[in-house]
């Protein structure tokens, strides 16, 4: 017991939100308060510490493709419920809710367009859709994007952001690791380039299949990239993990990433990479 009592109530700081809906936003890394418009102009990276905010496929399309050149494909593929899966909520409901909340039909979009005039086929994951989890739809759409690349001899890029395989499709999700890796092998045999870009976070079955199989693997700064999630590792070894463990810079140091690319420079770097493959 304190020996005196507070006369007035605590100062109320109101609700704290990571990403306020207002005009200003706070960098979760350095605490800098940034005007939202400015953040957008800065490719959703912090003006002070260059922290990369998580963004979705629409943003990446605008960062990479020449204006008006992007054409979305395979947009009408939706998850089924092959196993009639129910945990605390039926899978069908989870899908319907996620479609409504995220505005995407599943955890990946595919399409093609031009990057400074160079053709590129692409698949971009959306972490906001059930943690970017990979089920049959993700596998099939990657398969089709790769087949498009194969037919048209156009380089393929996949931007990953995923917690791993989707549990609600169980073994079928696991099989998407095989399916996507197999089609990338076919693409490789045909001599069509594949660029894998890993963003925050990329873990589990996605890292252990297409995300690690690029002719070049590139990553955004500070992205969490790994096979097992940090919590699982801590539980297994019963130790705290060192700072920076499983971040892009760590993977670069260990030899699993070719280079780290700042979002602001993405289009430029991508153009020069595509040029290398071309000439």
């Amino acid at each position: 017991m304190a020996w005196f009592n507070r006369q007035k109530a605590n100062i109320n700081t109101e609700q704290q939100r990571e990403m306020p809906d207002g005009l200003w936003t706070k960098c979760p890394s350095c605490g800098e308060v940034i005007y939202k418009k400015e953040l957008e102009l800065n490719y959703f990276t912090c003006i002070k510490c260059r922290y990369h905010f998580r963004v979705g496929s629409n943003e990446y399309i605008s960062f990479i493709f020449d204006e008006g050149s992007f054409v979305e494909t395979n947009e009408n593929i939706f998850s089924g419920d092959p196993l009639d899966f129910t945990d605390t909520k039926p899978y069908k409901e989870r899908i319907a809710d996620s479609i409504e909340k995220s505005g995407f039909n599943d955890a990946i979009i595919t399409g093609y367009g031009t990057v400074n005039g160079k053709k590129l086929s692409i698949a971009i994951m959306n972490f906001s859709f059930i943690g970017g989890s990979m089920g049959s739809v993700v596998g099939e759409k990657i398969y089709r994007a790769a087949k498009y690349s194969l037919d048209k001899k156009v380089p393929l890029m996949i931007i990953s952001a995923s917690g791993g395989a989707r549990m609600q499709e169980a073994a079928l999700s696991l099989m998407q690791m095989a399916k996507t890796s197999a089609v990338l092998a076919e693409l490789g045999e045909a001599g069509v380039p594949y660029i894998s870009m890993l963003t925050d976070p990329t873990t589990g079955g996605v890292t252990a299949s297409y995300a690690m199989l690029g002719d070049i693997n590139i990553a955004e700064p500070g992205a969490l990239i790994g096979f097992a999630g940090p919590r699982v590792i801590e539980q297994t070894i019963k130790k705290k993990l060192p700072a920076g463990f499983q971040r892009s810079e760590f993977l670069l140091d260990k030899g699993f990433i070719d280079f780290i690319v700042d979002r602001k420079e993405l289009k430029e770097k991508l153009t020069s990479v595509l040029q290398w493959f071309e000439k």
Binding site: N76, I77, F78, S79, G80, P82, G135, S136, V137, G139, E140, Y143, E169, L172, M175, Q176, A178, K179, A182, V183
Partner: peptide
């Protein structure tokens, strides 16, 4: 492996 998976095309 290409055939594995279940999805709906609408």
């Amino acid at each position: 492996y290409y055939k594995l998976g279940v999805w709906e095309e609408k």
